[in-house]
Design a protein around this nucleic acid. Structure first.
Lengths: 345, 345
DNA sequence: TAATACTAGTAACACGAGTTACTAACACGT
DNA sequence: ACGTGTTAGTAACTCGTGTTACTAGTATTA
């Protein structure tokens, strides 16, 4: 670093005024009288020196960092498998940038040191937490300390501000679509093990849609996936051992669905003629699966953006319209579902 | 924020010593005499108060931020289409965390304000730049100012420290694999427009492999893709209008490849019987394409990790073993390539 | 003309740490 | 008893900024 960056003192000296005046001018402080010529001179010098205030100094006195933390509690494997996470991240970044904030990215390993450190160090003004676990008391403590926090996802039995997809409604829509196609034996493969709330929500939507259609829920038709295509492959193979096998399957993740599709093809069956498949997420590639996957589109980027905006509202102490923002998903019809030919059952 | 965080002054008062002593003890300063009992008392109080040094204060005096910037110059669309970028990011995060650093994420829109701001503000100690453009002089200026910088990718005619995949070698391997299968008419669909170095490198590997196999390069067989499956679909359709059409195609991106596969299927042709396809990237889903895609695996996470480590070396002023780290890719054979049946030509 | 109000700016303090230079108390050798 | 060295610690300065309280000079008003 050859060139030392200019400080406000440098600007002050070159402009022949005090540092205070420089601060007043550059921060456009109201209620202070500065002659127009002086103001112009300071601005000119600041520009010449390419002056930018040192954030550390500014942070120290203001107590604000102008930075929000984006904390991912997902394991590296989950992150890798989560095809829409990057969109979410970009959404957060966009919201932050819009308000002049930075984004600090942190991936937390289950047993590594906690993210509370970020807060104690005064590194961030607020935190967006992606993938909260039920047993996570840290975040609740932070919230009760009055620290700005927004969840991405849900934590039952708490009133933390959160932003989420209406996964239950999305799952409901998906399964309802299948029942309307006259399917009677509809299986589900979850996106994740059932201890995760995201899986629970989708399973709930599945059961509700079955119930509304007057179809009895059979536990054996609910198989667990765990983010990977491989898990979808295995789950589908389990379903295929049933007689008769289901005529339609709701797979609560497109990535898992591609494994299920593989299994169906491997068994010599056709989609959608023999089995209908509906996915969840609408990842970029879903359209290019064979066959093109009918699925539920999640507003990933919007989710991140909303979380960022919500957090910034809280940081600025603004009144929230609602502490819980639920975004709607949307059915995208392609060609992996067909009406039941009713020879099942 | 109800509870004010404890400062070193608080610790000092409660332990009945001066702030200086607290600083000595907590930073384990060598060559200073502190009675063992005092030391223990201070540590105990610090723990009780849950004291963590305020980073802003520390940054101000040390001039270090313990933060590195990860700057993405890719457009939001590119980011969305780049299936391995998230792995790269996690790799960077891992390297940073290992050394006690934070990662600041910044996505720069082509014409938005520059990333130099991050530097001037003193927000980061160094920058990793992903997706540099040829005409980017900002980064070169920063480098010449002595600011720690690492490129992810390459910038020809500069000696900036960089970390990259050996894309040319990877492309060479892919195409060599096809020539060894006795293919004579081998087309290529690029991952991106040819003004991007990443596309140029892959095209260079393609031409070299053709040359080594004694096959003449035909410009018409080199079609441009632009990150999306749709572009692969269109490029493949252009190739299919040729008589005879190529017996094998190297698609320099798995995501683009899936579009090409769609086009081939839509034309009623089979893979690999009628056309062999080899991809590039080895995205998570490549294994589950129909057919499973033979491709070149990029060490994405390792790339990010290496970039992070390299940058931290530079920041700490350590001598670099080499200023350019090139990681090797690897051929992953699945079932989308078959020997040429030699009826072509 | 003297009291008052406004203009244009500055001196001084605060934020929370790290670090250098100094001191008071005691031990030791002669 | 006196100088020297060590131990255990502290006062005071620095980093770069924001902000409050104050002042000197000028304009306005009674």
């Amino acid at each position: 670093m050859n060139k030392k960056r200019a400080t406000s003192e440098d600007v002050a000296q070159l402009a022949g005024v005090s540092r205070t005046t420089v601060s007043f001018v550059l921060n456009n402080v109201q209620g202070v009288n500065i002659r127009e010529s002086t103001r112009a001179r300071i601005l000119k010098v600041a520009k010449e020196l390419n002056y930018m205030p040192n954030v550390s100094g500014r942070k120290l006195v203001s107590g604000k960092t102008n930075t929000i933390g984006l904390v991912l509690l997902q394991s590296p494997e989950q992150v890798r498998a989560d095809a829409i996470l990057i969109n979410v991240m970009m959404g957060v970044e966009k919201a932050a940038t819009k308000m002049g904030y930075h984004v600090l990215l942190k991936q937390i390993d289950q047993n590594t040191n906690s993210y509370t450190q970020l807060v104690r160090e005064n590194s961030v003004d607020g935190i967006i937490l992606s993938g909260p676990r039920k047993d996570d008391s840290e975040i609740v403590d932070l919230f009760h300390d009055g620290f700005p926090v927004v969840l991405m996802g849900q934590l039952p039995e708490t009133d933390l501000p959160n932003v989420d997809i209406d996964a239950e409604a999305g799952a409901f829509t998906a399964v309802e679509y299948l029942t309307q196609l006259n399917h009677k034996t509809i299986a589900m493969i979850t996106n994740a093990p059932l201890e995760f709330t995201s899986a629970q929500q989708r399973a709930a939507g599945y059961r509700k849609a079955l119930h509304d259609a007057g179809i009895e829920f059979k536990p054996s038709l609910l198989q667990e996936g765990n983010y990977t295509p491989q898990s979808g492959y295995e789950a589908m193979n389990r379903l295929l051992t049933f007689h008769p096998f289901p005529s339609a399957v709701f797979v609560a993740s497109d990535v898992v669905a591609i494994g299920a599709i593989q299994a169906i093809h491997a068994a010599g069956l056709r989609i959608p003629e023999d089995i209908s498949i509906i996915g969840f997420d609408d990842i970029t590639l879903a359209e290019y699966f064979t066959p093109a996957l009918t699925t539920i589109r999640l507003p990933a980027s919007e989710l991140g953006f909303a979380a960022g905006e919500q957090l910034l509202h809280i940081i600025k102490g603004e009144q929230l319209e609602t502490s819980s923002i639920i975004l709607e998903s949307k059915l995208i019809v392609r060609s992996s579902c067909a009406p039941s030919n009713s020879n099942t059952k």
